[in-house]
């Protein structure tokens, strides 16, 4: 009985932490994005609300939740709201299998900083990731607006193409690690003294491409393409509902997929790696906190990289996107898979 109680308590705390990180940080990432974009564009960005605009996300949120609830005529109200639920829930649930750091002990209880360390963690990520397409397709359909419809159709086209690519891209690291559990994959990289990016550069690049496509970031942001579709599938949403779609797509999903990229390719919470020799930790003075800091640093780096691309590149056209996926990316992942299968025994020595 005691242990169940402790277990539930630990789960509760973990959920609170994840929610805090994901939704709180997600909201603040809007500010980060606006600041980064502003500095890329040689302007200061939000400066009025709070010191250097620090309270801006709160002001935005407050504004969004006190907006009038408007529903487009002749739309389908149930599907319209279901789309929002389907967008938010799976995207956040992905964080259940993200390992934030190594196991540690607190008050005699061993805690893994991962909500559910299951042996099919990676499959869970992609299963949940595929749910996003339902949300967007439903949102477009239920809004009864042509712009929304076109936007959602485009998004579905992207997911159809990059779902395959991303699945094949992650097979390389899985072969090397020999497990699908996210926690174990990191552990294997630490044991083998190797970040998988050194052996999987192709897979990493393909994964990053697919990640941009799945999250609708530039150069793949055709589902909202302001200049063509105004805001695409969210055009009929208002208030906090309108706010949540980009929050989920552009921040929560980018964060979760970046975290998975860090887990698969960049050695999770491990410090800087010299292939096959070991790890160098310039942050050793942080003691037990150092792994968590490393994890956050790597995710932040990937996130900033995505932002950098977003505010530099133009966007592709839908047919170009799908053709790249099937004609360039997918063959590349096959090549990578065969190469990995040949090279893998070196790593297992």
């Amino acid at each position: 009985m005691e242990s169940l109680f402790v277990q539930l308590l630990v789960i509760g705390i973990k959920i609170l932490v994840i929610l805090g990180v994901v939704l709180g940080l997600g909201a603040y990432l809007t500010l980060v994005e606006r600041k980064v974009a502003a500095h890329i564009q040689r302007r200061p960005g939000p400066m009025v609300v709070g010191w250097h605009g620090l309270l801006q996300p709160l002001a935005d949120g407050l504004k969004l939740i006190t907006k009038e609830d408007i529903f487009p005529r002749a739309g389908n109200r149930f599907l319209y709201n279901l789309a929002l639920v389907l967008a938010l829930v799976p995207a956040v649930l992905v964080f259940a299998v993200v390992p934030f750091g190594p196991e540690f002990e607190v008050f005699g209880v061993k805690v893994k900083p991962i909500l559910t360390d299951v042996n099919v963690g990676l499959l869970l990520v992609f299963a949940l990731g595929s749910m996003a397409v339902y949300a967007i397709a439903l949102a477009g359909w239920a809004s009864n607006s042509k712009y929304a419809l076109i936007g959602s159709m485009r998004k579905a086209g992207i997911i159809v193409s990059y779902e395959v690519v991303i699945t094949f891209a992650v097979m390389g690291p899985v072969i090397l690690a020999g497990t699908l559990s996210t926690y174990e994959i990191v552990q294997q990289q630490i044991n083998q003294k190797l970040w998988y990016i050194w052996l999987q550069p192709i897979a990493f690049v393909v994964y990053m491409f697919a990640m941009l496509a799945e999250t609708g970031r530039v150069p793949f942001d055709i589902q909202e393409a302001e200049a063509e579709l105004v805001t695409g599938f969210t055009v009929e949403y208002g208030g906090i509902k309108f706010g949540l779609f980009p929050l989920v797509e552009w921040y929560v999903e980018v964060l979760s997929l970046s975290a998975i990229a860090v887990v698969l390719f960049l050695g999770g919470w491990s410090p800087i790696n010299i292939p096959f020799l070991g790890f160098i930790d310039p942050l050793f003075f942080l003691g037990p906190l150092s792994p968590f800091v490393w994890f956050i640093l790597k995710v932040a780096l990937l996130f900033l990289f995505v932002l950098w691309l977003h505010w530099t590149l133009p966007r592709y056209r839908i047919d170009q996107i799908t053709e790249t996926a099937w004609k360039v990316m997918l063959p590349l992942t096959f090549v990578n898979l065969v190469l990995t299968a040949v090279l893998a025994p070196i790593v297992w020595r």
């Binding site: 973990k14 939740i65 006190t66 829930v89 649930l93 559910t116 299951v118």
Partner: peptide, 26 residues
């Protein structure tokens, strides 16, 4: 999967709250 299921229900609650938030406050 216990944590996962609990988390799922919590998120469902939050999502439903978001759906009705504008209706309540706006």
């Amino acid at each position: 999967y216990l944590g996962f299921v609990i988390f799922g229900f919590v998120m469902l609650g939050i999502a439903l709250l978001m759906v009705f938030l504008n209706y309540l406050l706006g």
